[in-house]
């Protein structure tokens, strides 16, 4: 059975073949997830301890168990294009309880890394990068806070990159090594114009 049937678009969508086919699986995906996550995602036996522990699951369609299954089967597209991938709060409750000693949270992180390679990433993540590139801080200082700091006897800027901006070029070099700023700027621009 051909997967795209050549019907009018709406019908093609409605009647699409939803079965799992061999070519849905990319064995490389399983390997990549394992390499980046440094945990044994392929050992999942689908007990659901992870989802049962997950604070995001009860209020969304996010199912970490499903992502683990996708890691096992190599379902790269399905995993990386699912917007639920970004609903993990990284609380590690699943990782604490997983009987197979897997760290599912790190599997999610690895999948997010792989998604980013395909430019799939929510913009807020990139804005943190831009902020750190500029100031060294993800949540930078502001004038209200400077005044408050002074009032309680602290320096207006903390002794971080804020007080010592000469450290910022070093940070920029590291981020540039990975081309992270350029990529972030490009993606943010594409999304927000």
């Amino acid at each position: 059975m051909v997967r795209t049937k050549g019907y009018p678009a709406a019908l093609d969508q409605k009647l699409q073949d939803t079965r799992l086919h061999n070519d849905d699986s990319n064995p490389e995906f399983t390997k990549n997830v394992k390499a980046i996550s440094r945990t044994t995602a392929h050992m999942c036996y689908q007990c659901g301890t992870c989802t049962g522990s997950c604070p995001s699951a009860p209020r969304s369609t996010y199912r970490i168990r499903k992502f683990m299954r996708r890691a096992v089967l190599g379902l790269e597209n399905e995993a990386l294009t699912d917007p639920d991938l970004w609903l993990c709060t990284t609380c590690y409750s699943c990782s604490d309880r997983c009987p197979r000693d897997i760290i599912p949270t790190d599997v999610i992180m690895a999948m997010r890394n792989l998604a980013f390679k395909r430019d799939i990433i929510p913009v807020n993540f990139l804005k943190t990068v831009q902020s750190i590139y500029k100031t060294g801080h993800g949540v930078p200082n502001n004038d209200v806070n400077r005044a408050a700091r002074e009032k309680i006897g602290l320096s207006r800027d903390p002794p971080t990159t804020h007080m010592y901006p000469e450290y910022i070029p070093g940070i920029q070099k590291i981020l540039d090594h990975y081309n992270l700023k350029a990529n972030s700027d490009r993606i943010v621009k594409e999304r927000e114009g």
Partner: peptide, 26 residues
């Protein structure tokens, strides 16, 4: 598999948290 159990301090009833994997619902 049961993720965790919490006790209602008053009734001493237990809340069993798990994923019904067949229903795909926590």
């Amino acid at each position: 598999r049961v993720a965790n159990i919490l006790e209602d301090p008053k009734s001493k009833n237990l809340h069993v948290y798990a994923d019904d994997t067949l229903l795909d619902r926590p």
